[in-house]
Structure formats: C-alpha cells, structure tokens
Design a protein around this nucleic acid. Structure first.
Lengths: 119, 119
DNA sequence: TACTGTAGTTCAATAATATTGAACAATAGA
DNA sequence: TCTATTGTTCAATATTATTGAACTACAGTA
C-alpha cells in the first residue's frame, strides 16, 4: 500500500500477458466477478465471493498479476484497494478478446454446474 | 513416436487449458503459423518458420502442450508428425475464442513490426 | 502522540513447472 | 543391416508460483 501502484500503459499490454493472467482459474474467476460487480471489489470482498479459502497474500498476488498484465486498475480508498476491469481500454486495444474469453468461461461454468460439480 | 498420441475429447477441453497453452509467445506463434499453413506442419518446418533457434526437444514439448490442451491434432506421416489446429471443433466448443485471440495476436505483431522490433 | 482494528504487501522458504542437451526410439531408403 | 531423418523421453537446472508470518498503511479514538 506504499508504492504508487504501477499500471501499464494500455499500448504496452500484451496478448501473452493477458492470456497468462487469465490462464489461472482463480484469476479468471476474479475477473468474471469484477465484471459483474458495479464499482470494483477489494481483496476481502473477492475472497468472500469466490468461496475458496484464499489467503490474503494469495489474493494480493493475483491482483498484482492482473494489474501488471493490464487487465485491472486498482485504486486506494482509505485502507482498502478497490479494483475493476479496464473494460473500455482493453476493448479498444484488443476488440472482442476479453469478451470472448469471459463468454467461454461462462459457458464452461454452466456445463460444469449441469454436470453437478459444484453448487 | 511410440505412444498412441492422446488427444482430449473436445468436451474435456477447458478455457484455462487453452489460455495456458497460448500464454506462451512461442506457442501462440506456432498456432498462428499452423492456421496459415494449409495442411499442417511438423516440428522441423515450424522451427524453420519461426526463425528462433528452437531445440527440437523444446518444439516437441510445445506441441505436446498444445495437443494436450486440445488446440491441435497431430498425425503421424511416416517419420514425421504433422499437426494442425482443431479449428472447427474449437469453434463449436467455444465460439469466437480462438479467432479473437489470434486476431489480437496479429494486431500486436503488426504494431510491433511498425515500431521496428523485428523484421 | 499513542493505541487498536482493518486491509493489504512483502519476504522467504517450499513446491510446482518449464527448459533443453543428450540419449533413445521409430521409420524410410539403400 | 546401416544410415539419415524426425521426434520423444529423461533428468539436471532454472524459473515461477504459493502462502504463512512479519510488516506497512490508514482511520478512528482519545
């Protein structure tokens, strides 16, 4: 919470970086949740929603990787750090990319649920 | 070249698996090349095209990861192993996913070239 | 200023993956 | 069988990821 929170310039965002960030199931779920949320979510809120026993250091690292890949922007609000997806910028930089990945993810989640794997 | 070359069933292909496979710049380039090629490419041909000094064991591993993720199908032709992208199947399973990733990749390559980074 | 509670980061030890040279296996052709 | 070609597997090495514990930052209270 000390450093100035480096976000990459949108032109420096790479496809490989985005794919690497989203290749982790937890991070994919995080981005999915962030898109559903109206005005960002902090680590504590995210941990509650995902219902995985995620240590806060792990959440912090996931957020960092998402931030460094250019997928999210984080903003300090008092003691919290609220993050949200850089939707418009990413859409301009790589049209359709994030949408199709999230769409595929949703599709997969639905099939998994139908098979009875989780809730 | 001995084992029966296990390819996952298309229903077992996961988004995370695909993203992980394509998160590596070399593998992303491989898939891009395979899509350009008309009837598949083997490791030797791929190594020539990519113009990176890629050891054959490395190429073999990349092909294996792409195969196991469900992105490509490999077929023995004599002493060679020719691989191609499972385009139609993937399009059915996750519509638009592969296309948008490759489109983003092409876009990125164009910008990089304009900046003068490689050829 | 000091104290308390909350939120998140950093460190560092451990675990899991990735890389690749070298040895090996498979096939074609002579 | 011998040789050339293609690709796989092994195993040592290097790179990344995971996470508990210690630490930093901020807000509120007094």
């Amino acid at each position: 919470m000390s450093r100035p929170l480096a976000h990459p310039n949108i032109e420096d965002v790479t496809v490989a970086g985005i794919l690497h960030a989203l290749a982790d199931p937890v991070r994919l779920a995080i981005v999915s949740e962030l898109l559903k949320a109206e005005s960002g979510l902090n680590c504590t809120q995210m941990t509650d929603r995902l219902e995985v026993g995620m240590p806060k250091s792990t959440c912090s690292q996931h957020y960092r990787i998402l931030r460094e890949s250019g997928l999210i922007v984080s903003e300090r609000k008092g003691v919290e750090l609220t993050s949200r997806v850089r939707g418009r910028e990413l859409e301009t930089r790589f049209p359709g990319l994030l949408q199709s990945i999230l769409k595929a993810h949703e599709q997969e989640m639905m099939k998994t649920r139908r098979r009875g794997r989780s809730g």
